[in-house]
């Protein structure tokens, strides 16, 4: 099992700081990297994988800088980028063989591994079809298959469920959940429910900074007492939306059921509600905005 440490990591593109002073240590388990679009998740993951050089700071794997480890670090790594590139005219089988060749896997090992992975992601029947005929979900599944070819001990998945329907999302979650036991899985998303059931630890980013790093239960505790449920007449909704953060809004006959994130009671008839991870996520983001 490995340990990856990010220390004072910064990345600046021209005048924009995409990642600011990120310091975190990852050991085995599933880490959910949450944040809005543009929070710096993809940049952080690219630096984590050694694709982008940080402007300052260091990334150490078991005490060694990853840039010095070179091929040895890449042998431990499996990566699924957000914009997953592939040759459209390649068949699924040829593409996986190509990726196995890039990862310098012995032929015999690669052949067996590809069969296993096609079975795991449910694409055995489509192995000889060209990738241009695949749906979005199938492409993502090929993506996860190629990331697992070298049986990586560090798996990095950037928005792996984007564009997937709910059924495929659940399937994906189950695959990832089973992988997290003896490896580091870093999984980024802006959809909280993706990580709610599988992540042991949550990393929350906002404007390039890591505003929270810890386990999900502690994150929930942060929002304890700040989540309210209330039923209000429809005309009052805009005023409440202006004043408070509304995490859910549901029409209920002539009224509207609101789920409000607030330290103070938003309405006389508001009742405290049990905080869900999404509530905690919104609460922490909003808290940082206030600061």
């Amino acid at each position: 099992m490995h340990r990856v440490e990010l220390a004072d990591l910064n990345k600046t593109f021209k005048n924009k700081a995409a990642v600011k002073d990120v310091t975190v240590c990852l050991e085995h388990g599933v880490y959910g990297l949450l944040g809005e679009n543009g929070a710096g998740k993809t940049t952080l993951m690219r630096m984590f994988c050694g694709i982008l050089e940080p402007t300052s700071g260091s990334i150490l794997c078991d005490g060694m800088p990853i840039r010095q480890m070179g091929g040895d670090y890449h042998m431990l790594l499996g990566y699924l980028p957000q914009e997953f590139g592939y040759y459209k005219d390649f068949t699924a089988l040829r593409f996986l063989n190509y990726m196995a060749a890039l990862k310098a896997l012995p032929e015999e090992y690669a052949r067996n591994r590809i069969e296993e992975l096609l079975e795991l992601v449910g694409l055995q029947a489509d192995r000889k079809n060209k990738l241009k005929t695949f749906s979005g979900g199938m492409i993502r599944r090929i993506g996860i298959a190629q990331a697992l070819l070298n049986d990586p001990e560090i798996l990095v998945l950037d928005e792996p469920t984007s564009g997937l329907d709910p059924g495929e999302r659940v399937r994906f979650r189950n695959i990832i959940s089973s992988l997290g036991k003896n490896r580091i899985v870093l999984l980024s998303t802006h959809i909280v429910s993706d990580v709610e059931y599988i992540a042991d630890n949550i990393l929350l980013m906002k404007d390039g900074r890591l505003i929270y790093a810890g386990d999900a239960s502690r994150m929930l505790a942060e929002a304890e007492g700040c989540v309210w449920k209330c039923l209000v007449p429809e005309p009052e909704v805009p005023a409440l939306e202006q004043q408070y953060m509304i995490s859910n809004l549901r029409p209920h006959a002539s009224q509207v059921e609101l789920r409000v994130i607030s330290r103070i009671k938003p309405a006389p008839n508001a009742e405290p509600a049990e905080a869900a991870l999404e509530d905690a996520y919104l609460y922490l983001l909003n808290k940082m905005a206030e600061v």
Binding site: M64, P65, M69, G70, G71, D72
Partner: peptide, 21 residues
């Protein structure tokens, strides 16, 4: 463990980098 990626000219310097980290 990571001898395959060793590319330094100075072994002692390399070992000191690991030791320091």
């Amino acid at each position: 463990k990571y001898i395959d990626s060793y590319q330094h000219r100075n072994l002692k310097g390399y070992l000191l980098i690991i030791a320091r980290n």
